[in-house]
Structure formats: C-alpha cells, structure tokens
Design a protein around this nucleic acid. Sequence first.
DNA 1: GTCATTTAATTCAACCACTGAACAAATTGC
DNA 2: GCAATTTGTTCAGTGGTTGAATTAAATGAC
Lengths: 419, 419
Amino acid sequence: MTAVWQCQGVKSPAAPSGAVRQGNLRELNLALVLGRIAAARRPPSRAALAADTGLTRATVSAVVEDLVSGRLVTEADPTPRAGAGRPARGLVLADDGPAGLGLEINVDYLAACVIDLAGQVRHHTVHRVDLRPVSPADALSRLAGLAGRARADAEARGLTLVGAALGVPGLVDDAGRVRLAPNLGWRDVPVPALLAGHPPLTERVAGVPSLVVDNEANLAALGELHAGAAPGSFLHISGEVGIGAGIVLDGALFRGTRGWSGEIGHIPVRPDGPTCRCGGRGCLELYAGQEAILSAAGLVGADLPADRASTRLTELAAAEHPAVLRALTEAGTAIGVTVASVVNLLDLDTVVLGGGYAPLTGWLRPPVLAEIERRVLTAAWSPVTVRPATLGATAAAVGAAGSVVRRIIARPGGWLARL
Amino acid sequence: MTAVWQCQGVKSPAAPSGAVRQGNLRELNLALVLGRIAAARRPPSRAALAADTGLTRATVSAVVEDLVSGRLVTEADPTPRAGAGRPARGLVLADDGPAGLGLEINVDYLAACVIDLAGQVRHHTVHRVDLRPVSPADALSRLAGLAGRARADAEARGLTLVGAALGVPGLVDDAGRVRLAPNLGWRDVPVPALLAGHPPLTERVAGVPSLVVDNEANLAALGELHAGAAPGSFLHISGEVGIGAGIVLDGALFRGTRGWSGEIGHIPVRPDGPTCRCGGRGCLELYAGQEAILSAAGLVGADLPADRASTRLTELAAAEHPAVLRALTEAGTAIGVTVASVVNLLDLDTVVLGGGYAPLTGWLRPPVLAEIERRVLTAAWSPVTVRPATLGATAAAVGAAGSVVRRIIARPGGWLARL
DNA sequence: GTCATTTAATTCAACCACTGAACAAATTGC
DNA sequence: GCAATTTGTTCAGTGGTTGAATTAAATGAC
C-alpha cells in the first residue's frame, strides 16, 4: 500500500467526465452487474443477471469472472429451484475482500466499525467518553487508536480496508475541515491536518482517499438507505442534542451546493419565537431538541448524561408520565410543522426518525402525521409514512463504513486495477 | 409521421435500464458530444470537444458526422483565433432541425411558442382570455387551435416539431391528469383524453410522446435553467395568483416522489396564523400571494385583471407609494422566512424570483436577504444570491418548449434513428 | 515569397468488449 | 435411460473506439 497521504471532505474525488471510452465500457458493466448483485434479495445467477441487465449471458459471464477473480464476488451454495434444468450458481458479494472503516465522533462517545462488502458489520467498538472537555487533537488521537485496533481486527479476519469515513455532528467543508460543531464546541478544526501522524487513517488504498469527513446526519441517512428498508427518496431526521437531517433523493444523498444541506434544526417553526443560539428565532431545535423536550417534561437539572436522557424519556413515556407525554406531543407538533414544509417542498413519501427520536417514534408519530395531514397540500392523495430508523444509536458509524464499501460497489474499477 | 396517439405526465417515457451495450455506446457519446456543444459558450471545434470529453479526435469526428447528417449540428463560420494553425470549424446546434412546442394554460391567458434546438424562440403567441369561466374542454380546444397555428408556422420555417409540453398552474399526475388547479378552478381534468381529437397534439414523432403535461412552476424553472444564467442548483419561485416553486438540483429538475414538489405556497410561515383555503394555517400564500400583497397595499377592489396587477404594483412601488412599499416588505419577509427554511434544508446558493415577483425583485430582495442572513445557519460562510428571472411572463411556455428540445439533446439516438 | 511551425481534421489498421449462436454441463421428469 | 430444460462457456463476428500517420490550412520568421 502506498503511503500517499490524503484526506478530504465530501466532494467526490475524481469528477467523472461522463465520457464513455472503450475502457470505461467494461468498467460501467462491472459496476452495473456488481450493483445488481448487491441489490438482489437472493443470490442471482449469471443467467438472471443477464435477463435483469439486458446484457448477454456471455458478457455477464466475462464480467462476473473479473469480479470473482478480484475478490468482489463469490459463488454461493446453489440456490434450490423447482423444475428442470441445470442448477444455477448463486452470486453473492464477497465477505473476505474490501471492507470499509466507519468512525464517529459525537458529544459523548467515539465509535468505530468495519463493514464488509456484503454489508455485514464485522467489527464494532464504542468508547464512551464526554468529549466536550477534550481538545479536538486529543479526541482525534483517541479516535485514531480505535481505528488502529479496528484495522488490525479487520485484517486478522482477512479483510482489506479500502477507506474510512468519519461522521461528526457539525458542518464539514470540502477539505474535511469541521467549520462548526456547536454541541462539541468545535470551530474550524482541520481534521486532515490533525490526523496527519496517524498511519491507519492516512494511507491511500486502491486510489481511494483513506478518510472522508462528513456530517453524522448525512451518514446516518446513508446507513438507513443501505439498510434497505427505506425507498429511494426519504428524509432522515437525527434527533440528538441538535437536530440534523439527511436528505436522500433517488437513492443518493443530496448534499447541497457546499455540502451543508439538512440543517433542519434551524428551520424556523415560529418566526417570532424565542431567540436561538444560532441567531435565528423560533428554530425547530428550540421546540424539539433534546434540551427542549427534557425541559418541557420537567426533567431539566436531572443531570442525565446525554445518552441516558433518551432512554429515560422512553421509560417515562411508556409509563404514561403526563408531562413527558405532553412534551413529546409538543415536540412532535413542531417536527410535524417542519416536515410539512419539507414535504410540500420536496414531495417525499417517507420520513425516518433516527437518533434519539427512533425509540420515541410511537409518541412522536401521531402529532407529526396530524400536522402533515393538515398542512401538506397533496396529503389527501399521497400518504406520508413516518417510521423509526432501523439502525441503532451508532447509525452514523455504520453509515460511514457503508459509504466506503458502496463506493467500491459503485465503481469497482479502482479496486480491480489495484491488483 | 405515425399517428400513434400518446400523451402523458411527467414520468420519463422509457426508464433507462442502465445497461451499456455496444449499441448504446455510440448513443451515449452522441449525447455527450451534443451536450457539450449545447453547453459551450462559443462554437467548439472537434479538437476542443475531444479535449473536453476525453474522447479521441477520431471518435469525435465520427460522432459529429452523425450529428451533422442528422441535422442536429451545423458548422458555423470559423471562429477567429489568435496564433498559428489551421483554423477550427465551429460547431453549433442546428436551427433547422427538430424543434419543441411549448404551451401554457394560465388563469388569464393561453400561450404557445416554438423553440429550435439552439434555444431560439422561433414562434410566440399569447392569447389573453380569462379562462376561469371557460370549461377545461373548451380551454384545451382553444389551446389546440394555437398549437395548430404554431405548428404550421414552425413547419413553414423548415422546423420539425418533435413534441410538446404543456404547463398548467396545478398538480399533474403521471397520466397527465390535472388533479387540482385551484386558481383555474380545475379538478381531475383528464388532459390527454380531452385532447384526443386534436391531431397537432396527439401525434408521436421520433418515438417521443407528443405531449407532456407539467406544472408551470416546474417548467418556468427549467426555462430559467436553460436560459443559462442560473447555476446547477437553485430555487425558482413563481409568484402568480398562487406561489409555486421549481427546484433545480445539479442541473435537473427535482420532481419528488409523485411529481408534486415545489408547493412552496403552502409552507407554513406562521403555524398559528389564519386558515388558508388549503386547510392549513399561516401558509406563505396568505402573506405573499398576489391577493395578499394587493390587499395589504390597499389595492383590493381596484378590480385589476390579474396581469395588470403586477404592473400596477411595480409602478406604485417605483413611485414609492408607502402602503405598497410596506406590503412588499411584508411579503418579502414572509418569502424570506420560507426561503431560509429551504436553504437550511437544501443548502442552495441561488434563489430566482420569477413570474410576478421578477419585476418586484428590487423591493423584495432586501427583506428576503435579511431573513436569510438571520435564519440560515451557514449564511456567514455562504452567501445566497437572490435575483430576478431572466425570462418574461411566459417563462413556462418557453421552458416547456425548451424541455422538449432538451430531451432531444439528452438522447439524440431516438431522433437519429427516425431517419 | 518561401518554408518551418502550429493546430485541425481525416484516414486506417489494430484492438477491445459485446453479440449471438452453437455447444457443453447438470438437473428434473417421464 | 432419454427427452426436456435451464445454466454457463466457447468462439467467430462485429461495432465503435484507439492511436499513429497523414493531409489540410492557417501564421510568422527570414
């Protein structure tokens, strides 16, 4: 592995020129076939892939041979099938080839996980620590320690890490610099520079930059997308200390002009409401942020660590604690007003409640739906589904690792050329 | 021309399977080269296209030959260039090949226009008539008359109409049915069926369905996109009797799950405000719709026809009429609150004020910018530009015609195979 | 005015990847 | 055991791109 140091933000590394040259032709079909294998519910045969993609069986065979010899695909046990005919050999994504490293820095924990090409979590560590009093350099140093152990573990399992993605609760620019992470107390933190001395995160494998820094809400949304249950377009709302959102449109994360989309926490709910620390007035965060809910529920000063607060809320809600139920209804109403705006604007049919909201979905959903019903022009014809996220609390780390392997699936050429 | 009748809504006709077969290869490169010619600011040479696309000059020459013989591209007068060397032959889009027919039905006018491949408006008719008392069937019949004359005119100029797009101020479903057009008083109008007897709109040319029905705000945004001044992503707000928006993301219109995106007029500005006729409360339309502005300016009951209202407002604003200035500031503030939500959500850097708002931009921009400044989390690092639309009042018709020719540019194979 | 230089565009043999048909392989069912 | 069926591979053929050589058409120096 060449030790070319590179680290960057969310912009795609090499802008695809769009030219279809002869060489690209094979690459496109490699990606096409690999993508279908990844998307299939059960291991497809070469013949099924040919029928699915429109390519001939001969071409599919050739493409699959490349994929198998490149350790991206393996043949599964023959899938039993009814009727006559030679039995098909099922194709599945390899579980001993490239893998992705997902990292997360949040207010009260660090996390690292490794996901193989098939999407299985092969390693997962969470290190609970309050990072607010810790300097960014120190926090990243500890994270690099976690990453090193994750890498060693992955390699012991025969996996090859091809890159890492790091989620942070804040705004990240093109260069991987954290411009602002209010709840972490970070401002203008040059993550790439601070990680320069940590080899596990600064190598370049198969042409892929070793580390991409991204917003945790974006990565959590990607995780939910690849977890499969979500459709092509949805809004994923992460309710943590702040409120972030990831917007998935037609199967791809929409990042906006500068990568700062999804700042749903500062959408005005009551334009004349109280002043928010962002400078605006009546932001959603003031009505549905963790502090707002705790305060409305009369739990302020209970001195709960951030990760306990959500659990405690769920317990009290389950016990039908009146103030908590009221607080959740209020928060749900505020979320509903905001979601109504989003649905009017983007015509999405699915809203996923993630992060701290996920376990509270049962109580948040009714007021959210009520506001949608009332305020969305097209609500009568197009129902909106509100459902909890399927990934747990560390969805961002899982999504981060998933984004790395997805990059291999979307563009296998780089990995295959590495050999 | 075969007289296969087909008419549809906004869904793309043939879902591209994504397979890159050998035949598709040429088609993709035809589209690539043609797209670059269309996007270029000055006529590019074959050599420049080769450098631009990454294809070899030999391939570009072959592709260009196909395009020229298919009447999609013509050679322009050689562009003068400094320095030595054989002079380049510039390539431009043909102005005598395929063309698009754009149609619009609005509250108080019908419009038809023809645009050639190069984007030039070659025919334009506006027929002023209050359509509220007219039945949908009658309105469409009159529109078909306009379309027939436009077609005859276009053919007299040597153009071949390859399709038409129709903009209506309402929600359109996949089948081209107008589900709801409140200001027109339409509900569940089956446009395709009502046009069945009008040949100019029901033929199928070069495999393209002859008529696509779409929301006028969407088409106006597309028009603005192709007019060139706008960047890849922007929000286009059409201020007519209602308020609609077209959302352009990465150079493509974003339509949402069902094609009903952009209903910005019913985004709640004050969730506890007065009830809107949509059933919601405090919708933007109640603060920045045409009626709201006129009423706030004390011009209600002046019995102005809809098309005069905007002009009158501009005159009075220019004369610094105090009530009008106050009304525009209020409207601008409401728009600003909404736009702040959109920018927080999507991180767009450009907002285009279109329709009736365009001439009022001078007065609307300051309050809009003030709200953005105050409420957008990233405003400090990323300025948002608010500018008037460059197309006039009939942007939707122009955008509609443009969408037809753009389809040819994006997929020239169909047109070329027709020969 | 001639000629080297420079850039544009075309020609052509080579090659790459896909195509389609024929064939081999592996199973079911009668 | 044999026909039927489906999977997967082999192989000559072909379409389209490639890259180098060639032709074309200008500028600029001497």
